[in-house]
Design a protein around this nucleic acid. Structure first.
Length: 493
RNA sequence: GGUUUCGUGGCCGAGUGGCUAGGCAGCGGUCUGCAAAACCGUAUACAGCGGUUCGACUCCGCUCGAAACCUCCA
């Protein structure tokens, strides 16, 4: 399978040609949500970023297995001495079973991801369903001599590992710094070295989420689930592992070490990381009062928002920036995005009713469509440069409108290429969809036809009061009427 | 303090060692009963300071600024 795709590998810090291990198959693993709270922008960005990767690989013809986990095992909360975990804490506060919490927020996550038109991955495994795999992996690491047990808990031995392998190569950490830095934090620690991380943790008596293991009744360390589940569903060596940059250290660094220790080799060929989001230039945080959930974006029900922003506006906004750059959400930027998206979707609608000109020799022939299509591929092949694709799509819309205005002409061949290219990139790869066309029933179409006929009559008699009243009233119902040379058109906004 | 990512015109945001990104807003036109949409034209730019080069926004160094991580939190 030929491709010219290159992608930025965090491990090598440069763009590399994408050469899958077992073509035509491609394996993609992405760190999914911890389901103890409502989905927000921090969930939307990686989901959309890797949805783009998923869609493009599929478009190139790969048989992609996309695995994105659901973290439903409680992990310890840092600021509590009690050793309570996030999901259990939420469960206690809301008087629910921990799995009830996990189920509730997982469902919320799915609903909002669907609204954003994020495709469901091939497999969405849950950490709680793979305790056995995780226990086996801990045992393998113990057997290999890279871990030790203390009081029923098992820790990864960084010092031992570092003698033969480079811990910190993904994130650029230097081990000595880690040790000296971490050493400052005193505590009644079971760990031999502060930089060590837990593979298995013995549960405190009040800890509800627990499973039996050879070492204790307890729960797996956070980093373990991704290693265990990726190995199970994608094999011990697979193509792409993705996630947010915030996961670089320690999470992904630990995954590399675990796999190396347990399997004797690394498990990931390409590491991809999306950058973070900010809101009005600030990081999003509950204490800053700018923590905005997706539901609040969609309904506009947050004081920082001047209006509601539709799921497609959010999606388009994220795709308008390259995934490795930071992205700042502001009302001004979102409003601009909303207009741009509308222009794009209107253009796509216009394209459907465009007619090729059969007359030869007309001036200003629309041209360059082949180049624009190639340019879209070049952009995607250059590390998934969606903003580059979008710029080309806007150029296509300009051609579409010019042809529609009879200012340019287009051949049947070019029109067909234009249609297929627009559909491929706008709908299939970028995953944008028309949010307003869903509710146009036959009844509404019939009514609108009637109304426009009546209005046209009033216009012919220059009864502007009546024609304007109709247009204004419809506008209040979010139905906009536009008068053109060939009659009036309408659409729901 | 360390590691990492980044700093482009009013706003957002690509890209390149010398050649127009694109969107939104603005200005001037065309079209139009008016409006909207659309099309055409147009101003404003590469954080700062050095260096490499015939030439840097693009490479190197430093400074300033922002974000993430450095918390058995996922």
């Amino acid at each position: 399978m030929d491709n010219n795709l290159s992608l930025y590998n965090t491990l090598s810090r440069k763009k590399e040609r994408f050469e899958p291990i077992n073509p035509p198959f491609a394996g993609l693993y992405v760190c999914g949500p911890t389901v103890y709270g409502d989905p927000h922008l921090g969930h939307a960005r990686p989901a959309i970023t890797f949805d783009l990767v998923f869609r493009y690989l599929q478009h190139l013809g790969y048989k992609v297995r996309y695995v994105r986990n659901i973290t439903d095992v409680g992990h310890l909360e840092a600021d509590l001495d009690e050793g309570e975990d996030k999901i259990a804490k939420k469960a206690r506060l809301e008087q629910m079973e921990p799995m009830e919490i996990a189920q509730f927020y997982a469902d919320r996550y799915f609903v909002f991801m669907e609204a954003l038109n994020v495709k469901r991955p091939s497999i969405e495994p849950r950490a709680s369903g793979h305790i056995i795999e995780q226990i086996r992996m801990v045992q393998k690491i113990l057997d290999a001599g890279f871990a030790y047990e203390v009081n029923g808990s098992v820790y990864f031995d960084i010092e031992k590992y570092s003698k033969t392998h480079e811990y910190g190569k993904l994130s650029g950490r230097v081990l000595d710094d880690l040790m000296t830095n971490s050493r400052m934090l005193e505590g009644q620690d079971e760990k031999h070295n502060p930089a060590d991380f837990a593979l298995w943790k013995k549960a405190q008596p009040e800890h509800i989420m627990r499973w039996p293991s050879p070492w204790s009744d307890g729960f797996p360390g956070w980093h373990l689930e991704c290693s265990a589940m990726s190995a199970r569903y994608l094999g011990e060596f697979f193509d792409i592992h993705g996630g947010g940059m915030d996961l670089l250290f320690p999470h992904h660094e630990a995954e590399i070490a675990q796999c190396q220790a347990a399997l004797g080799h690394e498990s990931v060929k390409y590491w991809l990381h999306n950058n973070m989001v900010t809101i009005n230039g600030q990081k999003m945080g509950k204490s800053l009062g700018n923590f905005i959930t997706l539901e609040e974006f969609f309904t506009g029900s947050h004081q920082a928002l001047k209006q509601a922003y539709s799921p497609m506006t959010i999606r388009f906004f994220i795709l308008q920036a390259h995934y490795r750059g930071t992205i700042d959400f502001s009302n001004e930027a979102l409003q601009a995005t909303e207009k741009g998206l509308k222009k794009l979707m209107n253009g796509y609608e216009t394209l459907q009713k465009l007619i090729p000109s059969s007359l030869p020799g007309i001036q200003h022939p629309a041209s360059g469509i082949r180049e624009l299509a190639a340019s879209c591929y070049n952009a995607m092949n250059d590390d998934f440069n969606s903003p580059g694709v979008i710029a080309n799509l806007f150029e296509m819309v300009r051609i579409i409108n010019s042809v529609n205005d009879k200012k340019e002409t287009i051949s049947a061949e070019d029109l067909e290429l234009l249609r297929s290219t627009m559909k491929t990139f706008l709908l299939d790869i970028l995953g944008l969809k028309d949010e307003n066309s869903g509710d146009q029933s036959e009844k509404i179409n019939g009514l609108m036809e009637l109304i426009l006929v009546i209005r046209q009559k009033s216009r012919e008699t220059k009864d502007w009061d009546t024609s304007d009243q109709i247009r204004d009233t419809l506008q209040k119902l979010h139905i906009s009427v536009k008068d053109g040379k060939e009659g009036s058109t309408w659409n729901i906004e």
